[in-house]
């Protein structure tokens, strides 16, 4: 019986570690945004850009972005989708949005946005803006290897794989590591 309980506890422990973005001495830490992936979202959105994790925006922002009218003019491009795909992708984004996430960055993102605001650009989220405010423009927009704050992966080396955006994982292309 004791052995059974031990095995049970171990399983829960292991399962938690798999679920967490990272862990510290085996204790899970939800420190970035949830690095959740979805095949349909990847297939349709990552054709053009990094499939931004749902936890980077609140649900109301995703709903706004994914509305048929919005997709017709998606930041200057047409990104219309098959209606069934549009609904399924919207559901994925809304269900995993920052609102109910227990990941640190998602919590900070949602707390930084005023109640009535519906930011559709991740780069306009107050928390994201603040975190990047000290970086000179020449390293971002003036840097041909980065070009814009929108290209997370040009500097955040562990964003795509782990949803981690910590300072010590930043490497600004054409410049180097960043310490603030």
């Amino acid at each position: 019986m004791t052995r059974f309980i031990l095995v049970l506890i171990m399983s829960v422990f292991i399962a938690q570690n798999v679920y967490a973005a990272d862990n510290f001495l085996g204790v899970p830490r939800f420190k970035g945004v949830e690095p959740i992936k979805n095949a349909l979202y990847q297939a349709n959105c990552a054709e053009c850009h990094f499939a931004y994790f749902p936890g980077l925006l609140p649900a109301r922002s995703w709903r706004d972005l994914m509305a048929p009218k919005s997709l017709e003019n998606h930041f200057g491009d047409n990104a219309e989708l098959d209606e069934m795909d549009r609904r399924m992708i919207t559901n994925f984004l809304v269900n995993n949005a920052a609102d109910d996430s227990h990941y640190k960055r998602s919590i900070k993102i949602r707390r930084s946005i005023a109640d009535g605001d519906v930011p559709v650009r991740i780069t306009k989220v107050p928390y994201i803006k603040r975190k990047h405010s000290e970086i000179p423009d020449r390293l971002i927009r003036g840097n041909p290897k980065v070009r814009s704050l929108s290209y997370c992966l040009n500097c955040h080396t562990q964003a795509a794989s782990k949803g981690v955006f910590d300072d010590d994982t930043v490497f600004i292309k054409g410049y180097g590591e960043w310490d603030d």
């Binding site: 017709e72 047409n78 098959d82």
Partner: peptide, 14 residues
């Protein structure tokens, strides 16, 4: 097929 339809729609409109 689906992908070709998708890009025709997007790019023709653009």
């Amino acid at each position: 097929v689906k992908k070709v339809h998708k890009w025709f729609r997007r790019n023709c409109k653009w």
